[in-house]
Amino acid sequence: MPYLLVDRRRRSQWRRVVRAVRDGGASAVELGFPFSDPIADGPVLAAAGQGALRAGTGWSDLVDAVRDAAEVIPTAVMTYANPLFGRGLARSVGELAAAGAGGLIVPDLSWDDSAPWRRAAERAGLDLVQFAAPGASARRVARVARDARGFLYLVSRYGTTGRGAAAPRSPLAPIVAAAHRARPDLAVLVGFGIRDRAGARRALESGADGVVVGTALEEQLEREVTPEALGRWLRRIGPARRSGDAPERTPARSPGPAPRRPDRTAAPAAAASDGAGTGSDEAGRAAGA
């Protein structure tokens, strides 16, 4: 699942970008709404977000982008807690759902404080995604997974998004297993700092059902490649397959979709960056949102 930052300056080419991403093999898209203080973002996405805000990107741009994207591909929204809270929880999730979003990802909302958010999202018909991270106990992963809707977002490592300090990876398999034990129907997608095909493969070999790519795509867009070139780039890195023949899990098995929502599938395999051995710039920086 690719991550795309909503930026008013890209408005004119937005539909083409989304179509290109779909044609490049993505099974769903994650639209990012920039926040002034994005503590989980690495330098590339943080700078892109600040640029988008300086260019005047506002809530209405997000709603427009969701509307455009949702016509083409299942669409989730990612933003920090305050843009949603500051607008009023019920109102903001209602507006996103009405525009056609199927899921909501809030990186600074931990499970412990998410109860009112889960209620608001459920009422609006949005899947509120939950996070798991290295260091979590199996008990916590199970509790979080039980409340997750859409999919479980597994943070692959200690650190912010994108290429950062090479923090040592911790084994993901036990976390994935704990999540699947608690919720056999729930897809687990791995994001944050997956830099090459090997990393994506490792993520999938842990039992995960897909990966999220963000920073690498943002870097492509910043190079002002055409949407068609972007699609080719995604196609070139190709869908990474998960090994083994565990049951397919897709977010579609979560509680029934609202009438206006397209069928949401983040699909068992999403874009993963290539670059093993190529050393190419773009692939080397592929990373989760």
Binding site: F35, S36, D37, I39, L53, G58, W59, Y80, A81, N82, P83, L84, F85, G86, R87, D108
Partner: peptide, 21 residues
């Protein structure tokens, strides 16, 4: 300010209509 979420806590925050700090 008005209630908002900044640096991990819900409290009073100076922010704009979109919740940007």
């Amino acid at each position: 300010g008005r209630p908002g979420i900044l640096h991990g806590a819900l409290s009073y925050v100076l922010q704009d209509a979109d919740g940007q700090i």
